[in-house]
Design a protein around this nucleic acid. Structure first.
Lengths: 167, 167
DNA sequence: CAGTATCCGGTGCGATACTG
DNA sequence: CAGTATCGCACCGGATACTG
């Protein structure tokens, strides 16, 4: 698929950079619950089902990365506390969550259908995630696409000889 | 040993089910390389950059889950060998990869831009992933959506437990 | 080439106890 | 309620060595 000479380094791959933030165990499930409306620590804890320390760690990583932000709140008679909400950067992860959900719905679901539906709030119809050509909006599948080096691509490294007769 | 009430009905969440297959470390990077055209073990190894045993493990998991399939090939003068290719089930993971890539491009990229572009093979224009209403095709953001229980939704879980083998 | 097997130090995970 | 602190253990990562 790639021009064979064009080796890129995996360090500056956007997938890897994203996974460095959200790729740890439980993190995407924490985000799922955030999208579902969870905000408080105990709420995440019971709904995600991971260990307390891990949840604390994940929330710290996510706020540190700017994906979530800590918002103060105060219940009457209680001291001030903080809850965790998605930032804009975090809200923009919705397509990733939905992509995983859609795939699970299609290929790993029970016979009775998906456990959760994502709907358009205004009209109630389901939301869908589509891959398409930015130009003519043709729907695209994996067979219609062609990856190629972008502006931030690093020049090929010629550290050692390259055989690579792939296809 | 394990408090039942602390368990969310997240076991049947499609996101979790998907992550049970592709959520381990390196797996999504292996899939990224598969989309980029990698097929042979050593090819994955150098491009993904993980340990041999982990790569073997991941490829086994993926073929076991039907995401990749082992295809025989024969180089002249060599014995028959196998390479790993994406199945239809695996090809359908492209949106998830692209969602992660797009987010990385938007929020974690270098100044010079994304290292890789996904283009429409036929016309050369970039591919894009859009979330929209299935009914009227309105583009949707996180603020426009509403999750709600689907047909496969489970109420609460009774005290009869299954295995706790998380992951 | 395409793996499997083994070893070993380190990190991350999971459960619980503890604190404010 | 919202976290820390702690501890045993599983798994990871990297380096070989071995097999077909």
């Amino acid at each position: 698929m790639f021009d064979e000479r064009q080796r890129y380094s995996a360090d500056n791959c956007s997938v890897k950079r994203t996974l460095d933030i959200v790729g740890e165990k439980w993190t995407l499930l924490v985000l799922r619950e955030a999208f579902y409306g969870a905000r408080r620590f105990e709420e995440f804890l019971t709904r995600v089902g991971c260990a307390r320390n891990l949840l604390a760690e994940r929330l710290n990583t996510l706020t540190g990365a700017g994906v979530m932000r800590r918002v103060p709140y105060q219940e009457p008679g209680q001291r001030e506390r903080y809850e965790s909400r998605l930032s804009d950067k975090g809200l923009d992860l919705l397509p990733a969550i939905i992509a995983l959900m859609q795939w699970g719905d299609r290929w790993q679901a029970d016979a009775d259908g998906p456990p959760v539906e994502i709907t358009h709030r205004d009209c109630g119809h389901p939301a869908e995630l589509v891959l398409r050509c930015a130009h003519d909006h043709t729907p695209l599948t994996a067979r219609d696409i062609q990856p190629r080096p972008g502006p931030g691509a690093q020049p090929a490294r010629s550290a050692h000889s390259d055989k690579s007769a792939a296809r």
